[in-house]
Amino acid sequence: MNQTISTLDAFLAHAHELEREAVERYEDLAGQMEVHNKPELAELFRKMAAIEQQHVDKVEGLAGGEPRTLAPWDYQWQDPESPESIPVGQGHYRMNPYQALSLVLACEERAEAFFANVAENADDPAVRESALQFAAEEREHAELLKVWLARYPEPKAEWWQDLDDPVSQE
């Protein structure tokens, strides 16, 4: 699907929501990792949330305040969710940093693709220029993440195994 974002206002609204939802999801994941005793991953997701928050602030700077919000389903995403958010259903309580960073990397790559697509389809030069800038930034992040990723070992085979049974609660 090609993006039909024709004005700078609409573009900034999308960029803002994309970054805001990324923060939201990273915070959620950080919380999940805290609850599941993965402090290292919790810290990683918190850090990602903080980085994305800077992007939120940046968009607000560009827009001269919080851009107008659309109904959640009116944003022109290519997937059910905004591109820079780790999709619902991803993540595991046994995952290691390599897997977490892979999920983050995928977010950056989806975000880059989103902005590139907007730029490609934009009639308004202001939108195109802005989208290209955002795309470039996301690409930088992706490259950086690849470097980080290289520092961590890949998960072992059957990494998800847990010798203990799940716990009965209610």
Binding site: M33, V88, H92
Partner: peptide, 19 residues
């Protein structure tokens, strides 16, 4: 913080409810 397993669909539902 929810006690749901990471990856649980309910996180998505919670998000939907808030939105």
């Amino acid at each position: 913080k929810p006690i749901w397993c990471p990856g649980c669909g309910h996180f998505g539902v919670e998000t939907s409810l808030f939105r």
